[in-house]
Design a binder for these strands. Sequence first.
DNA 1: CGCGAAACTTGCTTTTCCGGCAAAGTTTCC
DNA 2: GGAAACTTTGCCGGAAAAGCAAGTTTCGCG
Lengths: 205, 205
Amino acid sequence: MTSDVGLRERKKRATRAALSQAAWSLMVERGIDAVTAETVAATVDVSPRTFRNYFSSREEAILDGIVQRASSLVEALRARPADEPVWDSLAHVLPEAITNVLGDRDDIAVLARVSAANPALLAQQLTVFAHVERLIAEVIAERTGADVERDLAPHLLAAVPGALMRAVVTFWADGDTDASLPDLVRASITQLRDGLPLGRAAPAT
Amino acid sequence: MTSDVGLRERKKRATRAALSQAAWSLMVERGIDAVTAETVAATVDVSPRTFRNYFSSREEAILDGIVQRASSLVEALRARPADEPVWDSLAHVLPEAITNVLGDRDDIAVLARVSAANPALLAQQLTVFAHVERLIAEVIAERTGADVERDLAPHLLAAVPGALMRAVVTFWADGDTDASLPDLVRASITQLRDGLPLGRAAPAT
DNA sequence: CGCGAAACTTGCTTTTCCGGCAAAGTTTCC
DNA sequence: GGAAACTTTGCCGGAAAAGCAAGTTTCGCG
């Protein structure tokens, strides 16, 4: 899997991973202002210029880990049996996958807190989620025989995981609920599948 | 409505509107690279520094018109009878309102084209949509008796208009479909209300 | 093996952007 | 009328973005 790529490619990936890892840690430990090309590069022992070759902003570096992990979510979705209804695939994959992508509760809490005070990070976060949503829409389109360039349906369906990711980052991090994240996601999917039968008081908690 | 605010406030709003209007026009006519603090300010006859007092980036200025118009969408939603089911309110308001917020087909096409080539504008666009989505979630929460800070449901519901806005900007602009935008939105809402009964081939077009 | 091509890293440099600060001009309010 | 509050503006410094070319590493092929 990894061995069929040459040394050059492996080094690149290692550097990229190390940089984004360092960026994340720096943010957690010293705040986002401490995340500069200089400090991150110093941590990984490359030049600041190299950091800029990999990432065009500190925000991109910080969230690159999520982007990488998200691709495994997409793979998991693609790996479901081709004849399984889309909702079932989502119900199977998302509860665990979302946790994997976003990290544990502490990570999500950090991300939520910092994003709330930092428009640039929030914007980058939304960009990342939109990117993931797009990938999911493509998978759904493949499976339903829709055309991802022309049909709305796969995108509407893909908006569900997207909304879940955003909601999770925004709310669940507060810790006001004691339900486990996978359970929360499962409950939401069920609700949505049944056409969001929400009357006057049917909160998702 | 507008007369109970003083001269100072009116001037501020006028300047803000003029700046964002100028920024949009400049983008349409000369491309996004022509939109700088200098050029926009010159068009409106204020100093570049003043431009920066109002907007922290050119992207913010360009999209400020959408933000302003979006608040009328939210008002329209809030104005629906309190006992009307949420889906019905959305079905009533969104088809026309989305068109109002985003502008005519040419505007949407421009936005789509430029955003596709410009990560910063795309990010700002997503930020704007997320903001609108949040407002919609608040209205829905009010009406369903949910707690916008703790319940997922209003946010999941609000994700529908959000996804529609994004999808519209992304696809409808291409002009590959000849359905009217309001009809398209109506059809999508109906589908979603009925629980997205999409089997293997039920594209939204 | 070993050599030339291609790719990556790095420092340097220029340009642009962002925002703090304080002086000058407006609006508000009493 | 005049002080207080707010907005506009120019100046400025620090940070970031990106082009360029020299030096180094990896790759592919004979």
